[in-house]
């Protein structure tokens, strides 16, 4: 479930990046790569687990699935927070800088 949530987040981000291209001011490429990196890693984790326990891998009970969904959504939230911090630090449009200068 965590893998699925992350893959969907990666696909949505990639579509947004494609629609916004060539505008790079939102740093959507960073968010895409972050989610794709995590998706690939969880895919490997899933393959290793499947090779160990076989078809049982797909037969999770509802409590485990709910926990995994909750984890997947938290992972997406954390990814978005990391991306937001990077965006505000890099500040490609200079909005944070100009706001700080105005306040001073």
């Amino acid at each position: 479930m965590t893998l699925l949530v992350t893959v969907f987040a990666a696909i949505i981000c990639t579509l947004l990046w494609y629609m916004k291209a060539p505008d790079r001011s939102l740093q959507l490429g960073t968010l895409c790569l972050m989610f794709w990196g995590a998706s690939i890693m969880w895919l490997v984790d899933a393959v290793v687990e499947y090779s160990e326990i076989g078809a049982e891998f797909f037969m999770q009970d509802s409590a485990d699935m709910l926990n995994d969904l909750y984890l997947g959504l938290s992972v997406v939230a954390l990814g978005l927070i990391i991306w937001l911090v990077i965006l505000l630090i890099k500040d490609p449009k200079g909005i944070v800088r100009s706001a700080l200068i105005k306040n001073n």
Binding site: T2, T6, G29, T30, L33, M34, F35, W36, G37, A38, S39, I40, M41, W42, L71, S74, V75, L78, G79, I82
Partner: peptide
């Protein structure tokens, strides 16, 4: 940089899963 972003991003999110 593409590789860096995939590796750092993936590792950070995976580390969060391990904390979870």
């Amino acid at each position: 940089g593409w590789l860096n972003k995939m590796l750092w991003g993936g590792s950070a999110l995976l580390a969060f899963e391990h904390i979870w």
